[in-house]
């Protein structure tokens, strides 16, 4: 500062004004960032506040113990939809998470520096898939599992959701594993470890936190999907554990209630959104705790 100040003092006026201009630009940048951050925070609080205001009145014990009645006078609860969403998340996760993780491991660890035809094709397809409107995967599930089975069912819904998860998990896994320094890999291989030992014992544990984040992002995304379920699981007013039947889900139930004409059902619908957010929060925290424990026990 002092050096710049000294030269501009002794120098020509042009230099000084250029310096002033740079300062204005610099602070302009700073305030633009601040303003945008404020806008984001405000928006977030608006959404959250709106949900709480609308959803809290509908929260009750019955919400978790009763199923839908179909009667606008006494709409009942959301037990069937909560169970349905949890089952759909579990089923789609069982398929989508391992496939996504392993594909990501391939892209980052086994493809030659990410070059090579299979790697580039996988990455391209993943990027395209991640950008495909979710209703398209719903239609795919419809063609693959609804039409052959003759009726809407939970398997088709879970598969459609898994289709959405795979590219998200694969790409975040690849990105996160790439952040692990190569010196870890070299160190492990130089000690006589195989590639799979290196990945399982050094590379993946070093990235566990971010891998979990990627998986949770995919689960959250999927848990909030409605469009692919319209064509596949359809929905069900009764509690069912059988995925070969039309299957309930929170999002579909909320959609039906909130867009419907009855105030009593709207209240339950708004409460359902709060429940969905709470489920994701609990899931996120518990998966993180479990993953952290698993890593600690091995290292």
């Amino acid at each position: 500062m002092s050096v710049i100040g000294a030269t501009s003092l002794s120098g020509k006026r042009g230099g000084e004004s250029r310096f002033a201009l740079r300062r204005i630009r610099s602070s302009g940048m700073f305030w633009a960032c601040c303003a945008s951050t404020m806008a984001v925070i405000t928006l977030l609080f608006l959404v959250a506040g709106y949900l709480f205001v609308l959803g809290l009145p509908g929260i009750s014990w019955a919400l978790f113990t009763q199923d839908a009645t179909g009667d606008p006078e006494a709409p009942g609860g959301l037990r069937h939809a909560i169970v349905g969403t949890l089952v759909l998340i579990a089923l789609s996760g069982v398929v989508g998470v391992p496939v996504g993780l392993l594909a990501g491991v391939y892209l980052s660890e086994y493809s030659r520096e990410g070059r090579g035809v299979p790697a580039r094709a996988t990455r391209f397809v993943s990027d395209v898939l991640a950008g495909v409107p979710s209703i398209v995967t719903g239609i795919l599930g419809y063609e693959l599992l609804v039409v052959p089975m003759g009726h809407y069912n939970g398997w088709a819904g879970a598969l459609a959701l898994a289709f959405i998860m795979v590219p998200i998990v694969a790409r975040t896994t690849e990105e996160m594993l790439r952040l692990v320094p190569d010196s870890f890999r070299a160190g492990s291989l130089a000690l006589g470890a195989t590639r799979s030992q290196t990945i399982l014992r050094v590379v993946a544990p070093a990235a566990t936190g971010s891998l979990v984040t990627g998986v949770m992002l995919a689960i959250a995304r999927v848990a909030g999907e409605t469009a692919p379920l319209l064509f596949t699981a359809l929905g069900n007013r009764a509690l069912t554990w059988d995925p070969s039947q039309p299957f309930p889900s929170l999002t579909k139930q909320v959609f039906d209630y909130v867009t419907g004409p009855y105030e009593s059902q709207k209240r339950v619908g708004w409460a359902g959104i709060l429940v969905l957010i709470a489920i994701l929060l609990v899931l996120n925290v518990s998966v993180r705790i479990v993953a952290a424990r698993a890593v600690r026990s091995r290292t």
Partner: peptide
């Protein structure tokens, strides 16, 4: 065995680092 230019301990405990070759 090999020792690298930049120290590259794994992100594990000191103990697990040392016994890594035995573990694998």
């Amino acid at each position: 065995g090999m020792v690298f230019q930049k120290p590259n301990p794994f992100p594990m405990s000191i103990f697990e680092n040392v016994v890594y070759p035995l573990r694998i």
